[in-house]
Amino acid sequence: MRYAMAVDTRKCVGCSDCVVACQTENHVPIGYCRDWVVEVTDGTYPQVELEFRSERCNHCANSPCVRCCPTGASHYEAGGIVTVTHHRCIGCGACIASCPYDARYSHPDGYVDKCTFCLHRVEKGLEPACVSACPTKCMYFGDLDDPKSPVSLVLRTRKHKTLIPEAGTDPQLYFLI
């Protein structure tokens, strides 16, 4: 089992509904977010290209944050989802410094927090909150080992990229281009 997500940059309109859905679903403290939307503009009008990316933790297969965690609080769950066990986290900040995507933050309660791919929903067979809330249906989630999962199907037919693969983290958040 290998959970992954694909975001269609050609369908995404940058509405940030995914961000609000996540904050609501996961009780993210006010002023923080686990996912965010990046707008990339290339060129100048009229020769201009626009790309929207809904970004979050890449749930890397070779996670620097799991590697550097001194207590084992940051770990892989089934399917390669990277999560933090709050009561084992000492709040040293090493994982925050180790993430090339800046996907983690220090929760006001002290521990480190991040996107969980909505593990609590996925376990029940539901989609992550961001995926289910997306009004343009631009996000696909599922198991890469299952050839019939939405993410496998879309990655097979569409050109895609990952973010800074040269950082060597083997990210599992794909962007359809």
Binding site: S16, G31, C33, V38, E39, S106
Partner: peptide, 9 residues
């Protein structure tokens, strides 16, 4: 564009 401003990050 979604206005990320995580404290300390």
């Amino acid at each position: 564009v979604s206005g990320r401003m995580n404290h300390l990050i």
